[in-house]
Design a binder for these strands. Structure first.
Length: 275
DNA sequence: CCGTAACCCTGCGTGC
DNA sequence: TGCACGCAGGGTTACG
């Protein structure tokens, strides 16, 4: 499940390889993954376009093309974007193959078929619901201790729900939210407006830490995630609570619990993270 | 404003 | 061994 660190890792692994190349052909095996435009229009518009740069916003990956067009991907749960040679056997669930220069290809693979892409003009990016409503990036200059303190005060929702809300902070998903809350020693069911200044400050630091460490370790491979080269991440080795139900807390040795909160499996230490 | 749930989908773990 | 079933999960949408 690619969250910010995973998408950032994919972006970094791909950009060194594909920047400067052009899309010379395209094969679409599962048309519904393309949200806009229609299949024929998509082919017509993308063929011949040159890749100028890659960027990321929240969990969205953007490929900036010539003609001020942008190819936007959201990988959702199990989506993969792989750079490879044309003669490599296509993996199962390959839904889109973008032919680059010579024998190189960019392939979109997605077992669950939840991933989506859009091809739009630069000034139509604000028509993509979800992308246009994204909140601040954890490393945006505007994302400060003061910002989070102020925002938490006026939110009555549970802190876990709030951190998963992409219109509040962009890029956090289930794994990094649980990790951040554990570091900040905050129970996932606490109401946001009950957090004191100290807790808000700790949460701010914890979010930036886990995201930074996630990127430094090339993301978390829990099950499906791989980067643009097909390599797994390493951060799963460093997770302190996520997917560790029944195992001892690395800080206090109490047993990690799992509970469904905000519709998501939530892992926490009942001792370090009091209600 | 907030919470819950359905929806999309396939693989996998569980229980019979 | 094999089948049926339920669960997992990001984000959007609908509804109370």
């Amino acid at each position: 499940m690619p969250e910010l660190p995973e998408v950032e890792t994919i972006k970094r692994t791909l950009e060194t390889k594909i920047t400067g190349q052009s899309f010379n052909d395209v094969k679409i095996f599962l048309p519904k993954i393309i949200r806009t435009p229609g299949v024929e229009e998509f082919k017509k518009q993308i063929i011949g376009k040159k890749i100028k740069a890659l960027s990321r916003r929240g969990k969205y990956l953007m490929i900036n093309l010539s003609g001020d067009m942008v190819l936007v991907f959201h990988l959702r749960m199990t989506g993969r974007l792989i750079y490879c040679q044309a003669d490599e056997t296509p993996a199962r669930h390959t839904h889109l193959v973008l032919q680059l220069d010579s024998e190189n290809q960019l392939r979109f693979i997605d077992m669950r078929q939840f991933g989506r892409l859009w091809l739009v003009h630069q000034n139509e990016l604000n028509t993509i619901s979800g992308l246009k409503d994204l909140g601040l990036e954890p490393f945006d200059d505007a994302f400060t201790r003061e910002f989070i303190k102020k925002e938490l005060r006026r939110k009555r929702t549970r802190i876990k729900s709030l951190l998963l809300d992409q219109s509040f902070i962009a890029g956090l998903g289930n794994i990094y939210v649980d990790e951040a809350l554990h570091r900040a020693r905050i129970h996932p069911e606490r109401l946001a407006n009950t957090l004191n200044a100290r807790e808000a400050s700790n949460l701010y630091s914890a979010i930036r830490e886990v995201i930074k460490e996630g990127i430094e370790n090339r993301g978390t491979t829990f099950r499906d995630y791989v980067d643009g080269d097909g390599r797994t991440g390493e951060y799963q080795e460093l997770l302190r609570v996520y997917n560790r139900e029944g195992q001892p807390c690395l800080k206090c040795k109490k047993i990690i619990k799992r509970k469904k909160i905000a519709g998501r499996s939530s892992y926490f230490c009942p001792n370090c993270q009091k209600e």
